[in-house]
Design a protein around this nucleic acid. Structure first.
Lengths: 157, 157
DNA sequence: GTCTACTCCGATCAAAGTAATCGGAGATCA
DNA sequence: TGATCTCCGATTACTTTGATCGGAGTAGAC
């Protein structure tokens, strides 16, 4: 399935919203609070709060306490990539467990494994894709983005 | 995380093994049974059986009953892509649930959703990547594959 | 200075998906 | 006919994810 979790969905929606308000034309620089986002997109408030906490902890957004408080992007929308958002919520991304094995851990199949190398290449390619797309790309107008279809070349093609 | 399940791991290993025996130099055309693969790669026998059943059901391999029975690729290794294998085991792949909504189903966030379009593009790109890599590419020699880094272009880049 | 509204954080519970197991039926070949 | 294999459905345990709760700390309003 390769699905991303709902939390990640919520994170993407929230960040997109924050970015579009913060850098929009109507009320630029306005601070956004959790409740506003939750109501706008029909997301459970408490769960969204946890998601925003995680984003804040990993430095993508900064929080402001007290009344009239809320969240702001910690850096510009151009400097926030989808890969960063994903990793903030779901941890290091990888198709396989063996792609981030620590010392001592060991995959039983490892020494006989015939698919590790090609999978790592695919994984790397997906990572580059996610890392080349920024929050800013996701915002605004209709054409949004154009993706060149990536290609994989076999040894004898 | 974007992880693939262990079942899919097993499927990839099994298919790679079958392909390399079936089209290898030592015993070309030999039929491979479940036990052989399970022992070779230390996979639980019963679980692997289920995986192979699924692959057989979706037409990637064909089964031969009785003694000396086992599995063979249903078509050549060049014609089996990673995307097909993944979908056989995990069902239709998609980053988001809303990418394969049936009639009647409905995502609460849908009409306010600001990330649907860009996510579908990313998803499409990943799909093309997985679909362009075949079982044959995964076999054999060391260089295996070369992946051109995919690029995403924003509206104003 | 107190009160209120908000973020922050840890702990917990329920639901869903995945991994693994079991038992038996049917097919093929010796 | 019997042994060996695939096939298939049902079931159990486990891990991850989704969602909820309660309380602590902080900044601004009065």
């Amino acid at each position: 399935m390769l699905k991303i979790s709902k939390k990640t969905d919520y994170a993407l929606m929230a960040l997109q919203h924050i970015a579009s308000v913060q850098f929009g034309d109507v009320t630029p620089g306005r601070v956004i609070n959790t409740k506003e986002i939750a109501e706008e997109y029909h997301i459970p408030l408490e769960l969204l709060a946890k998601v925003l906490q995680a984003l804040s902890k990993s430095g993508l957004i900064e929080s402001h306490n007290g009344p009239k408080g809320g969240y702001l992007l910690a850096r510009s929308a151009e400097q926030i990539t989808i890969a960063q958002i994903l990793e903030s919520i779901e941890g290091p991304l990888g198709l396989t467990d063996c792609s981030h094995e620590k010392d001592g851990e060991f995959c039983m199949q490892r020494e006989h494994c015939n698919i590790r190398t090609p999978l790592l290449k695919v994984q790397d390619s997906i990572y580059q894709l996610l890392n080349s797309m920024t929050l800013h790309n996701m915002m605004g107008g209709t054409p949004l983005i154009t993706i060149q279809s990536p290609s994989v070349q076999g040894v004898d093609r």
